[in-house]
Computed example of a mutant assay.
Amino acid sequence: MTASDPPGPRLPNSPPPAGRSRVTLQVIAERLSVSTATVSLALRGSQLVAEATRHRVREIAREMGYSYNRSAASLRTDRTNIIGVGFHDITNPYFAELLAAIDETAGRYDRSILLGTYAEDLDRQQRVLGTLAEYRPDGMVLCSAGGSTVESLAPLIDAGVPIVQLSREIPALDLDFVGADDRHGTNLAMEHLIGLGHRRIAFLCANESISTGRNRYAGYRDALARHGLPFDPALVHFDYGTRENGLKGIQKVLDAHDPPTAAACMNDLAAFGAMLGLRHRGLEAGRDFSIVGCDDVKEAAQWFPALTTIFNFQNDMGAKSAEFLLNRIADPTAPTQRLLLTPALHIRGTTCPPPRR
């Protein structure tokens, strides 16, 4: 057909030609022989509409090229159906797994997530959280940067933004929290190593600027005291839990006057770095030295040898944080919720009795 040809006939119920008219709720309603109110509720994921009808409305809306005007809808309902997520790190697979669980749970309730990351940088965290707030999320799930204080989240709290703290917490804040019992987790690791006969045990990537670091380090100190083992500062490496810092840490403690035969690590990334550091010295985890990680990211079972580690149930943790936030959005005055999941020890190939000297 050339530009001068008259337009051909349109089939009944077919979408309007591009550029002629906009697909509206009324057009979709007429196509399905339902009310515009039903279409509107279905597109917003309302449970007042049967699931089959919601699915059909969305299917037809896609076919007809309908674009949901989220901004207009948020003005009508005072909801954006967006959840802000602020994480200090998603290069660590542990936090990627948490994020995936949040996203999956939010999606089941027809919420979208908006992610901001800020490393361990307090100034960047302030900017990122401010930018997230500009999108008017209905609430936020936050894992704050190291060194965060009450003042760090004050602008969001003062603005009335519902917040759930995830994994890390600022204890002075009366906010919903979902995390693991990190102190207990490190106790599990230490009991395993001590039970194998280790008496000189290092702790790699201790960090007291974050709640997880404080609690895991406290679990290490608890276990030493409980078994009457001396605490030796030369066997502790302070830093954030990364592969690079785990490698540096194992090199440091191996150079101690009386070196350790085992190490508990802040997280799996530090443990992976420590395993590489052992190989730099011609040693192998599970044969010459014992290593225990924490988090049990999927990669942990794939290493050779596979990493003995503490599992924190991060899928449950991420899902629960999203559920807590949705509950807080629905009822801002409800009592604060706090959930500590109990970790589990997964014994694999990187632990063994200490070698004979």
Rank of each mutant, 00 (worst) to 15 (best):
I83Y: 03
G318R: 01
G8Q: 12
D232V: 10
L41I: 02
S74E: 00
M1C: 08
D176Y: 05
A18P: 04
V292F: 03
L204F: 09
Y217E: 01
S67Q: 09
T309G: 02
D123N: 15
F304L: 11
V164C: 10
R200F: 11
G219Q: 02
L129M: 15
V57G: 00
A133G: 13
A133Y: 15
L166R: 05
E97P: 03
A180D: 06
D174Q: 14
A154S: 14
L340W: 08
S35K: 00
T336E: 08
T186H: 08
Y118Q: 11
L175D: 03
V297K: 03
R357Q: 07
S290Y: 05
E63F: 09
S152L: 11
L254Y: 00
P9K: 14
R127S: 15
L339A: 11
A100C: 12
P7Y: 11
T149D: 14
G146E: 14
Q251H: 11
S46Y: 03
P259R: 02
V297A: 04
T80S: 11
L43Y: 02
R348H: 10
R58C: 01
S40H: 01
P354Q: 08
V85N: 01
C294K: 01
I170S: 07
G84L: 08
T350V: 08
T351K: 06
L278T: 01
M266G: 00
H237S: 04
G65D: 06
K248D: 04
R214M: 09
A73K: 06
H88I: 08
G179E: 06
A96D: 08
R31I: 05
G293L: 04
V161R: 03
S112H: 15
R108H: 15
C265M: 03
D158M: 13
Y94H: 14
V164Y: 06
R124S: 14
C294R: 01
L114C: 14
G8F: 07
E30A: 06
Y118N: 10
L122C: 12
A172L: 14
C143L: 15
P355L: 11
V128H: 11
R70F: 09
C143E: 10
